[in-house]
Design a protein around this nucleic acid. Structure first.
Length: 425
RNA sequence: GCCGAGGUAGCUAAGCCCGGUUUAAGGCGCCGGCCUUGAGAGCCGGUGGUGUUCGCACCGCGGGAGUUCGAAUCCCCCCCUCGGCGCCA
């Protein structure tokens, strides 16, 4: 959430920023918050004064008792005061809840470089890298290729778990592992710390990482309302330092994780189409940085480079799009996607999602830092996909397919495949 | 799952039995100052959150209810950690 002090002290600055998201509901929520906060401060002051009075009486009672004197007269005075305090406390709690609920709905402030725009259609292309290959035979989509080579089974998994799941077999399952190893090796060399995190997190933790809409549409809830399956290891990595105060000298903390990811994908287009592009369960290597506020722009660029190098090494044509104001999730100050070329759809599809969440997620989880001068600030968090294996496999299968139905394995992966050069041979 | 011990500030650790001189002690670390050529040592001050009329006030001892004039301390419910036993990949 945002810093309430910022709203209180610079309401017009916050309003101007939030206006760029192009959502009237957000602006209304902001106004409501400002009103509630004003009233809350008035009530809180009255409450504090009454409590001060009560504390004073308590001290006087203690004083009298100590000297062996009678305090019943004083104690009798507290009846009305107690009632008053109770009423003020009820009202204060009410207002605070209202403010808290509003704060959860208010999105992060946008980074100054975020392009304007109302939705996905106005995202801005940053660059395109690599040339789509020319095919001199009819291209097959990845599902056809897989089924022809017997490298996956979608029917069996549908029987056991429903659509959106899959069974990888043989060389494709091994390619999955090769991609994971490849991505881990890449990030390890960069000096990021490898983490294998829990795949289940408390609901409270998860709702601090994303909004209610995102939660309801994507998160599997198990064990009734307590634990949830992670949709991405971003959540686990973020949560690692919950309620911690980190010394400035320990920052930045750079991590990467491999995990399985689980998503309901309610209402998502494509979840019922067969294949590996959109699934309920997938493997992903994710990078994550905790840093000082003034450094988050720098790591934003660094994390994009880290991921780009993966697709350059795999020789897959890709482009980078910067998300416009209207297309950013509420916890993001800024975001960009890497999209890969698919010859079958003749379009680019999302592979990586880079976000600078500034202090928004960190504030939700109480992750702070003590600066070298002794003062405290909420730190910044950033995350980016390194490699999600299923989508990358789709890209490889479709871009590297051969006329004879086999699929060449990118050079960069062969050492992780015992030198194997082609799938289907 | 059962039994036991615990959860106090950045870390550590008293206070809890027996409610009120404790403003949540002391130590470590960190920040500032004095001193010093410099560093260290030593000494002094500061070091959770909120509000503020910048005087101060309130809140804060895992979370939530309760008793009381007054709760870190007493009662109840819940969560978590550690150890032992049990079960198990």
């Amino acid at each position: 959430m945002l810093d309430i002090k910022l709203i209180r002290e610079n309401p017009e600055v916050v309003q101007e920023n939030l206006k760029k998201r192009g959502n009237q509901f957000i602006l209304d929520t902001l106004q409501g918050t400002i009103q509630h906060d004003k009233e809350w401060r008035e009530i809180a002051e009255k409450l504090n004064n009454s409590r001060a009075e009560r504390n004073k009486i308590a001290r006087e009672v203690a004083e009298l008792r100590k000297e062996g004197e009678d305090a019943t007269e004083l104690i009798d005075q507290t009846d009305k005061l107690s009632t008053k305090i109770q009423q003020l406390e009820d009202r204060e709690k009410q207002l605070r809840n209202a403010i808290d609920n509003n704060m959860k709905l208010l999105p992060n402030l946008l980074h100054k470089d975020v392009p304007p725009g109302k939705d996905e259609s106005e995202n801005v292309e940053i660059k395109t890298v690599g040339e789509p290959r020319e095919f001199d035979f009819p291209v097959k989509n990845h599902v056809e290729i897989i089924e022809n080579l017997g490298l996956a089974d979608f029917e069996s998994s549908a029987k056991t778990s429903g659509s959106g799941f899959y069974i990888l077999k043989g060389d494709l399952a091994l390619l999955n592992q090769a991609l994971i190893q490849f991505a881990i090796e890449h990030m390890r060399i960069k000096g990021y710390v490898y983490v294998e995190p829990p795949l289940l997190l408390y609901k409270d933790i998860l709702t601090a990482a994303l909004d209610m809409e995102g939660f309801q549409q994507s998160i599997y809830n198990v064990d009734q309302d307590d634990l949830c399956l992670i949709g991405t290891s971003e959540y686990s990595l973020l949560a690692m330092h919950t309620d911690e105060v980190i010394q400035e000298s320990e920052l930045p903390k750079k991590y990467f994780a491999y995990s399985m990811c689980f998503r309901k994908e309610i209402g998502s287009h494509g979840i019922n189409e067969r294949g590996l592009w959109r699934t309920h369960q997938f493997n992903k290597v994710e990078q994550f940085v905790f840093c000082m506020p003034e450094d988050s722009d720098k790591y934003y660029d660094e994390m994009m480079v880290n991921s780009e190098e993966i697709y350059k090494a795999l020789e897959l044509p890709y482009r980078i799009f910067e998300s416009c104001a209207g297309d950013l999730a509420i916890w993001k100050a800024r975001g960009s996607d890497i999209e890969v070329w698919r010859p079958t759809t003749q379009s680019y599809g999302e592979l990586c999602s880079l976000s600078n969440c500034t202090d928004y997620q960190a504030r939700n989880l109480g992750i702070r830092t003590i600066k070298n001068d002794g003062t405290r600030v909420t730190l910044h968090t950033l995350n980016n996909t390194v490699l999600a294996t299923s989508r990358t496999m789709v890209a490889i299968l479709e871009n590297y397919q051969n006329a004879d139905g086999t699929v060449s394995i990118p050079d960069a992966l062969r050492k992780h495949m015992r030198g194997k050069e082609k799938l289907g041979q």
